[in-house]
Design a protein around this nucleic acid. Structure first.
Lengths: 295, 295
DNA sequence: AGCTCTTATGAATCATTGA
DNA sequence: GTCAATGATTCATAAGAGC
């Protein structure tokens, strides 16, 4: 079954009104950070940031399934020698709004932005705040297991990974099953620290996060054909990854420029005009998925 | 000049009254976490934690020099499926108290505690919150430079470190100077993410943090003969490291057992009885350092 | 001295049981 | 009902033993 990828231009607080309650399985996004420069993209002042975000997170809360997750990649700026507090204030405010602050994952940026300042070192990490609607949510831990440390490394090196795979496929059963058990033993569950390099290629659009970041969380918190939302889609990295993983995705961005970029990346062709979109999504009772009226 | 190391038994909020304003260059500590170490410290309830800590941080603010730093190693616990908020509430409250929240360093625990739960992975990081009294504080960035990655490693390996040193000592100048310059070129400033393994050996005293943690911050934020305070000294790791780095140190712990342990580690011999301590520290006007009346 | 293999041990968290 | 105690689960280290 082919999965859908939709890109909407507009403010997510308005565009999401098209969607019914309890619809998405995962919301993952890297919103525009608070910035004093009002003219730049996003440009919300730090003092206004919490209130601005709460309007939108209220809608996220509505459209997220009870078993769903909301992953918020964010990092407060340093200004006038101090870290801003709007992110931690946002955490407290979102709990008041009804969210559970389930976990804080750390994205360690292995290659972070260069620079030198008298009062701080280079900032090599960002928060990936994990919010949920309930204590029982979907989490596929096995989908993101990682090779174990020294123990497995040594064994793999002495045997040769290709040898293992080849032998396994040739034998078929018996020893193959042992290999499988042993291979499972050589994997461990990851921690709440992600070591990912930023993608700083020469590409024209600079993604907010590397593909590996949405990849990891989408595998972890959704199954195939689940629905993934990025309400600040930017150049469409989340959508691209989600589509590649066989998930249905919706991306929203306020800038037409970004939407067109994402449409080319994700859909591979110019998209229909905005006016052709249906005004409201209607839930299909049988599948639980929305039907969109044809233009 | 020999440096001093003092260990006081008592509640730091009371013991610090002995010390004058603007005395310490660095306060670095890992306080008892909420609801942890109940059998030793009595476990402060999460709801009471902020108020409990603010009483003490007020005193820290008083005894810290205007150019000094306060490094707070802490991590909120997870309970009933959610992360507690007392740490981020503490940050906001300490700013109200007059602190600047200058930076948040991440200690990535390479070997974290094992375990498996349906809703989270192993917790592999802790916060090292950096507070200051002013925007101009002491920071010796050069003292914590780290070897660059593959580039320098490969060169050093191909040449052999001993070869470099030997050649340098034989030649004396010229090439030796080039070597020194080249070595400096192979060093880079670190980031705000520290990768340190916890020391979980078979030793009888389990430190809250590995020696490398206070080592790094002491080098970064103090000079030799500066004064370092750990108001929750525990087994005395901070004091041990500070003394080894030629800094004067004061450690305070409420448990006699820990104080005795620290005294043996740091002072190398049983310490004088508590009753023999002077009641109040008196500042020596010439040196700016406190004189303690002999018992 | 160098290896490999074994074992103990952590600032942990959640589900279950018992008062 | 709530609250405290216990067990199950799990992995990167360092020390120790054996060759």
């Amino acid at each position: 079954m082919a999965v859908k990828a939709e890109i909407l231009q507009g403010d997510c607080v308005e565009e999401l009104r098209r969607y019914p309650d309890d619809f998405f399985d995962l919301i993952i996004t890297s919103p525009p950070y608070a910035d004093r420069r009002q003219h730049t993209y996003g440009g919300i002042k730090p003092e206004q940031y919490v209130a601005w975000f709460l309007d939108r997170s209220a809608e996220f809360l509505r459209v997220l399934k009870p078993t769903g997750s909301f992953v918020l990649n964010i990092k407060e700026k340093a200004e006038n020698g101090e870290r801003h507090t709007y992110v931690i204030e946002l955490i407290l405010a979102m709990r008041q709004q009804g969210w559970l602050w389930t976990e804080e994952y750390i994205w360690h940026k292995r290659n972070c932005y260069p620079g030198k300042w008298p009062n701080r070192f280079r900032d090599a990490w960002e928060r990936c705040l994990h919010f949920t609607k309930s204590r029982k949510f979907k989490m596929n831990q096995d989908a993101v297991m990682v090779p174990m440390g020294d123990w497995a490394d040594a064994r793999l090196k002495s045997l040769g990974k290709n040898d293992v795979v080849r032998f396994d496929s040739q034998v078929g059963s018996g020893f193959g099953k042992n290999i499988a058990n042993w291979a499972k033993r050589s994997m461990a569950y990851p921690t709440n620290v992600l070591h990912l390099a930023t993608e700083c290629g020469n590409k024209n659009h600079s993604a907010a996060f590397p593909r590996a970041l949405p990849d990891w969380f989408i595998k972890l918190f959704t199954d195939e054909e689940d629905w993934v939302l990025d309400p600040f889609a930017g150049s469409g990295t989340t959508l691209e990854v989600a589509k590649g993983l066989g998930r249905n995705t919706v991306g929203i961005d306020i800038l037409l420029e970004y939407c067109e970029m994402a449409r080319e990346t994700v859909l591979g062709k110019p998209y229909q005009l905005l006016e052709e979109r249906a005004q409201y999504a209607v839930t299909n009772k049988a599948t639980g998925k929305p039907r969109r009226a044809k233009a």
